[in-house]
Design a binder for these strands. Sequence first.
DNA 1: CATGAATGAGAGTTCATTCAT
DNA 2: CATGAATGAACTCTCATTCAT
Lengths: 205, 205, 205, 205
Amino acid sequence: MPKIVDKEERRREICLVAINLFSQKGYDKVSIKEIAEASGIGKGTIYEYFESKKDILIKSTKQFCIEMMDNMFLKNMDFSKPIDAIETFAKETTKMFKVDNNDFFLAYLELLVVNLRNGSVDEVLDDLKYIFLQFRNLLQNAMEEGKAKGIIPSHIDTKKLALALFAYLDGLMLHSWVYHTLGEDDDFEKANEVFMDVFLNGLKK
Amino acid sequence: MPKIVDKEERRREICLVAINLFSQKGYDKVSIKEIAEASGIGKGTIYEYFESKKDILIKSTKQFCIEMMDNMFLKNMDFSKPIDAIETFAKETTKMFKVDNNDFFLAYLELLVVNLRNGSVDEVLDDLKYIFLQFRNLLQNAMEEGKAKGIIPSHIDTKKLALALFAYLDGLMLHSWVYHTLGEDDDFEKANEVFMDVFLNGLKK
Amino acid sequence: MPKIVDKEERRREICLVAINLFSQKGYDKVSIKEIAEASGIGKGTIYEYFESKKDILIKSTKQFCIEMMDNMFLKNMDFSKPIDAIETFAKETTKMFKVDNNDFFLAYLELLVVNLRNGSVDEVLDDLKYIFLQFRNLLQNAMEEGKAKGIIPSHIDTKKLALALFAYLDGLMLHSWVYHTLGEDDDFEKANEVFMDVFLNGLKK
Amino acid sequence: MPKIVDKEERRREICLVAINLFSQKGYDKVSIKEIAEASGIGKGTIYEYFESKKDILIKSTKQFCIEMMDNMFLKNMDFSKPIDAIETFAKETTKMFKVDNNDFFLAYLELLVVNLRNGSVDEVLDDLKYIFLQFRNLLQNAMEEGKAKGIIPSHIDTKKLALALFAYLDGLMLHSWVYHTLGEDDDFEKANEVFMDVFLNGLKK
DNA sequence: CATGAATGAGAGTTCATTCAT
DNA sequence: CATGAATGAACTCTCATTCAT
């Protein structure tokens, strides 16, 4: 069934176009016509691939989640050195969101907000949950490894700490975009380094 | 003599209603009719107070900025104990965003994103800049005070650190809302305590 | 009853303002608010003087008709020299519509068209009829006088000729405005002279 | 493949409907909904053919100008007999505006006035200019031919005379409509004959 | 009397969706 | 399959009119 593969691939392409437009203009300000034109297909043809505009959002979000997990640097992380792992994680995350990559964060933020605000379908919500848990677990595991190695004090609540650390990274990306858009660009990679120095210093007893 | 109305006060009330609706449904999904009805006035009457829907956004954002700065707990902070000040600041911020106060963060996020994405009027952008600078300066000043008191090492780049710390707080609020909406409520106040313990521990000496 | 006189006078003033606005922008494009502001009174006060927007049109048209007949040079015409009378009439008419007086013609045209198109009240229609008859009669009388004096051939149908001559004058004013507005100004006074020379030449004997 | 439609032809049809409505009620009193219904299509469909209401006016005016020039009897005029040509021209023009054809003149007047008053796009203004020049030239050429043939005195300013003669014809049409609408119908064809007799008599030395 | 705050009908316009081709 | 012509619901905004003050 080669046709189906093609269809699936086409849908993926349209999703990428849609995500890009959503992130730039906001979901509501993007019209079907616009997505169709940017995808190089006819307006009516969109409905061969998606049931509705909301369906584009759903499938795009799903797509985004999949690719986010796939492309993440996470899989290559070395947990034998937990502190380094955490530092690397933070560094890589902030690197992702330098000027040119604001698009990625905006897409992440828009898809997150639009899906959560209007109450999306369960499948999408589960994907989002999964991402949040995955990231937190990753950080938590690194911290637990640190505990096991005696680098990190055992009294620390690693779940809560991982929760906060992940939040910090998203906050950093949000502010990076805000400052950039306000024309007050600042060096967020450096800010992250300074912050992580203090944080990791505080973590190591 | 016509009916006497405090136009400015009325405008303020409508702004509060609008901000609330914007935060719940997103600016684009809120209709003028909706704002009018929620304000208990007629559709046409809105245009006695605002020039256009965009003008509602602008005036609402301005209102929000003013009230945010006014109502902030900041003014009562005691900088003679810088470390405590920072801790208090973080604690108060997270307290603001417990379940019931998610509205506030959502409003903040929506107004921020909508104004920045579409490129709002300069006056609004200046207000937003001011808020970001104000918060960062506050944290930076506390840190500098810590340096002066010999509590915080002098080599630390306080501007960058303050930048990151403020971002952390926004990230925490964002995640608090996300978790809550995903039905995965977690104790973000506690998470903040754990995180701040580590952070402040790393900051000292 | 001095109050009533005042009210009547005020109404007249508002009518003049309204006529001016109607002629510049067209009846439908002029709002009550605009008329009120240009008259230096409140929007609601307009309704102390007029029942409705249509009533402003009706009263304004009436006013216009009255003043048109009053101010007309007609009363001073000397019919003892019929040919001269006709020439003077045409000359005076065209003089009225040089650039600065286009306003007058536009008012005349707008009031005429709007009242006729929508079917105004009988009183107004009668006023308009009266004007058309009055002008035609004037010209017809001059021609009859010419016949009596043996200057104009007796076989000429003066009623039809007067009808056409009056129409010619309105056509000239219309075209004067059109050319002016198209930026193709031409000397319509001169054109009238040339035309009347031919016409009066044809009329004689 | 989608439904095949001759967009240009359809646009033309809608223009004809629009022109008709504009002439009857005035541009401002005609709603898009009305045009759509009279065209037998949905309100939204109008916007598949026109960008805006103003665009309908522009395209309708253009259409009107084109068809006016195309359908004009002018092309069949015989200039070898200039006096006859002028007489024929006037006769044909007045014939066009008998009761049933008032629509045509009203359309001409409304499109003229609305475009000129609000300052239309250059293209439309150029079309209108062209019509005025074309008609005047035609009459002027006939007169010049008359001069060359020795029928018309050489001292006559044919440009000015043609200007006035064309204006006369429009004036006649305007008055024909006014009288008709006022319920004072008169025989304007006859009036034109009488007038042209005098005029042409005056012209021939 | 004079006013302008309040209003909703209705305007022009957009757009997700349907469907004949 | 792919398309874009067709559509009406719903949007933002205007304005003649009313009426409490």
